[in-house]
């Protein structure tokens, strides 16, 4: 990690409008104490003995539009911003990847299932602030940026629907004894399964 894949897209003629949806994922290099505390609270206080692991990343979703030369320049500058500034990640303590395509959660163990819970503050103040910084400091104009926290829950493989329901029950706070990772009164959330984004915001 640290360098990233490039959003290529198919070659198109100059002048033809393109759009790229990129994802810059940032994770701590060392132990994530927030994730450890959350895992312990879920297991010890909310009875989540079936939760084998819990990890956390910051996900910057960046949408860039323009013709081919504009896109190429923007992608180059985005990588520079990630590599040379602290806008997205502090390289001393964090690592990052730049990717496109479906959000990947990693490889689950035998009999296990990884479920993602994407969480976004409402309003998202960081995304627009990042877009302004990209425009003023890195000459990437018109980018739409949003900032999410991605929790990845390692659960028993009981089928996609059951795993998603279990992640929702553990993640979305509805009562003192139910849910920890999202407060839906000011946060939006989505359940993510490999290759599928299940828009399940309604509690």
């Amino acid at each position: 990690m640290g360098a990233g894949t490039t959003a290529g897209g198919s070659a198109r003629a100059a002048g033809e409008a393109m759009r790229a949806l990129l994802r810059l994922r940032v994770a701590l290099r060392g132990e994530d104490l927030a994730a450890i505390s959350a895992l312990e609270a879920l297991r010890d206080e909310l009875g989540a003995a079936d939760l084998a692991a819990l990890s956390r990343e910051t996900v910057w979703e960046i949408e860039i539009a323009g013709d081919a030369p504009v896109m190429a320049r923007a992608l180059e500058r985005l990588q520079s911003a990630a590599r040379e500034s602290l806008l997205f990640a502090n390289p001393v303590k964090e690592r990052w990847t730049l990717e496109e395509g479906p959000l990947r959660l990693g490889r689950a163990g035998v009999g296990r299932c990884l479920v993602g819970l994407l969480v976004r503050d409402r309003p998202d103040r960081a995304g627009p602030a990042c877009a302004r910084a990209l425009a003023t400091d890195w000459e990437i104009a018109g980018a739409a940026v949003r900032r999410d926290t991605l929790w990845i829950l390692d659960l028993p493989d009981t089928g996609r629907d059951a795993a998603a329901a279990r992640a929702r029950a553990l993640g979305v706070t509805t009562a003192r004894r139910s849910g920890l990772l999202v407060n839906p009164h000011y946060q939006d959330w989505e359940i993510v399964l490999e290759d599928v984004v299940n828009d399940a915001r309604a509690v």
Partner: peptide
């Protein structure tokens, strides 16, 4: 409490001591 990990107050709210407060 708990360095505001996850969200301010979120983890502390699950403690047994807070159940006693309830």
């Amino acid at each position: 409490a708990f360095e505001d990990r996850v969200r301010a107050g979120a983890i502390a709210a699950k403690l047994p001591i807070v159940e006693a407060v309830a």
